[in-house]
Design a protein around this nucleic acid. Structure first.
Lengths: 198, 198
DNA sequence: GGGAGCATGTAACGGGTTACATGATTGG
DNA sequence: CCAATCATGTAACCCGTTACATGCTCCC
């Protein structure tokens, strides 16, 4: 029997359990859809196979239970729900200040950092693409927040979405500032120092 | 013989090769120190054992060469340097727009999203801790940029550091906004709508 | 008829971590 | 004398992904 009482679990496990903490029963597939729809803005969405694995583990730990819901003769759908022990453990986890900081792997900044290898135009292209992407994410998050708001759904997930669109807008703004830093650098480097306009 | 010509490599491999793209020779230990010092602001710093593994792979691919520098009878130090092929591959990689977006695993936002489990004070504590942390990161990045600037070191890494402190300041600002969103939510929820002060 | 969505699961693999093992040098 | 830093590397393990396997229903 696996150890109960405050196991050390990867963030993904808490994420899956977190989805289950909202009222109702869900299949693994449902959970993955949820994550893809709204969680992905601030948490890397795990692969479906990983979701299934975490669900099995949560059940072993007694943090969730599942029931088999036969829909046809052949098909089975396993529906999970959180247990009291699961909710208690999740609540304790959520109340703890994160032990590890947000994980970042920023491919764009890695490229900027390697700017000495690129021509200024290539670097600018990477940055403008990134701005496009960030603005698209901001729009998606804003649209989702708006629809959540209209439906008066869960208030905290809505706050998280509001944070998300602000985050991606600010990501775009930071990239714009970087772009102008790059321009300045190139200007200072190209012709003798003294030019002040773009 | 491993496949040359534009291998698909994890970001970490390009990161390690990236460190080698700056003039000079370096040991695995050196590379890890570099990453911990400055790269960590925008790229999750890999474990030392992983750095060594990537170095071996880069050498197999012909992207780096190493020489053994005996310092004493017993101790050996392996110094790596980038090859022309490695520089060419890295340059091609850097010029490509990232295929995958920045990876984010934001434990704090996960907790906000689960706000229904927490009392408002616990949630606020998580957020204020996060603000502290972000401001600390901003300070560290700014200090590093200042020292890099004084020494007139590499301009692009300096730009990356400038981006970094702006990023962490903006992370703090976003958390402050969230904090006031939480206050508003609690106010609307606690006593009948109409109260406006804290 | 075919593709998209619903639904679950296994197998193989790779990425990455921690713990372990070893040992020298430098500075408080 | 002890801790920190320099220095390299192995082994065990876990996290997580992709590819594979299967099959239904709904809609175009």
């Amino acid at each position: 029997m696996p150890t109960a009482e405050d196991a050390e679990l990867p963030l993904t496990a808490w994420t899956v359990l977190g989805v289950l903490s909202f009222p109702g029963e869900r299949s693994g597939y449902d959970i993955k859809s949820w994550a893809d729809r709204s969680l992905r803005f601030f948490y890397w969405s795990p692969a479906l196979s990983q979701v299934y694995r975490e669900l099995r583990r949560l059940e072993e730990l007694g943090f969730a239970t599942s029931t088999l819901a036969p829909q046809d003769e052949l098909r089975n759908k396993r529906l999970y729900r959180i247990t009291d022990a699961g909710r208690a453990a999740l609540t304790r986890w959520a109340g703890r200040t994160p032990d590890s900081p947000p994980v970042m792997k920023h491919g764009v900044m890695l490229r900027v950092w390697l700017g000495h290898l690129l021509g200024p135009d290539e670097l600018r292209a990477v940055l403008t693409d990134h701005i496009e992407w960030a603005l698209g994410m901001a729009r998606d998050a804003a649209a989702l927040e708006a629809s959540a708001h209209r439906q008066l759904l869960w208030p905290y997930p809505e706050l998280a979405l509001r944070w998300s669109w602000r985050f991606y807008e600010s990501e775009a703004e930071l990239a714009r500032q970087l772009l102008s830093d790059v321009d300045e650098l190139e200007a200072a480097r190209g012709h003798s120092p003294g030019g002040s306009e773009t």
